[in-house]
Design a protein around this nucleic acid. Sequence first.
DNA 1: AAGTGGCT
DNA 2: AGAG
Length: 211
Amino acid sequence: MSDLFSALRLPIPALPAGMVLLRRRADPAALWPVIQGLAAQSPFRFMTTKRGGTMAAAMTSAGACGWVSDARGYRYESRDPLTGQPWPAMPKAFAALAADAAAEAGFPGFAPDACLVNRYAVRAGMGLHRDGDERDFDQPIVSVSLGLPASFLVGGLDKDDKPQAIGLESGDVLVFGGPARLLYHGIRPVKAGEDPLFGPFRYNLTFRRAR
DNA sequence: AAGTGGCT
DNA sequence: AGAG
């Protein structure tokens, strides 16, 4: 990645202020069985957008509340609408990873109450959006990439701002808070491949303080 | 448009 | 045709 830029003598693009990338900070092998356990309780499902579209990434959640999208809009719910049961509890290993990464990035005391788990099959992506359904924007977002690599797009505070691409690999942890908290971001369609642990999928954990 | 499809 |  950065060797390409040095070989071409191009400036290495800097991350926006408030955004910290911790390469290979998470242990994919330790997280994989935890994700499987969550999915056994609250299965991955394809949610619909308020305008009737279907999201390309399958989702589930863990924690005191989970992110939900349907014809009524976006919100956090204490129960999984699919099972009628509370979402699976936030795994200890998840909470510890999120808190440690946030502290390392300059956001001490991060105690997420929601973890949205996205599963991208090959060719699935996510359009530019911002995480704006949380109560306190002083709390950062912690994003963990697992499985197939992806090109992450970071735009600006305006949706029309031209996004820059950042390559993310399994184990990478991205923290965005402060001035980066409400930046538009998205994921380019995942390229075909096979991860030794996760197979032909990319998983993403996003930790939030929703309430 | 947390979507697609089109354009380069 | 595929990537960005």
